[in-house]
């Protein structure tokens, strides 16, 4: 059920990438895809009634070990979130440049004005 919802989120983002004609809308759709993929990866590591993978001082470590969620997907998604920000900055910069050159965000106009 939750995986299906997550997949729907990714498909909505893909629909946006395929149908929108505005470069900013395409960037936003790519963001939605990114959110969906991050969510999916973190869901893979979730344990029912899990606790965060942080050892508390004075806590029972054996009990924590049995209840902690998987730390590896979280660490890799953390990396991915930060990289997503860098890629977004690059996309926004390209979008601004295209707007300055063609005076529009419409990708069809850009194709017509080429050459």
């Amino acid at each position: 059920m939750i995986y299906a919802l997550c997949f729907i989120l990714i498909l909505i983002g893909l629909y946006g990438v395929l149908t929108r004609r505005n470069t900013v809308k395409i960037i936003i759709s790519l963001l939605v895809i990114e959110y969906g993929v991050h969510l999916f990866l973190v869901l893979q590591g979730y344990r029912r009634d899990g606790v965060p993978p942080i050892i508390e001082p004075g806590g029972e470590e054996a009990l924590w070990l049995q209840r902690s969620v998987d730390p590896l997907p979280q660490a890799l998604v953390l990396t991915s979130i930060v990289i997503g920000l860098g890629v977004l900055a690059l996309m926004v910069a390209l979008s601004i440049r295209l707007y300055e050159r063609f005076g529009t965000f419409d990708i069809r106009e850009m194709r017509k004005l080429r050459g």
Binding site: H38, L43, Y46, R47, G50, I54, L78, I81
Partner: peptide
């Protein structure tokens, strides 16, 4: 989902995304 580190990072990144 018991991922407080991710929640903090997502908040910070989201603010910068909106500003950008």
């Amino acid at each position: 989902l018991s991922a407080p580190d991710l929640a903090i990072t997502q908040m910070a990144v989201e603010v910068i995304t909106l500003v950008l």
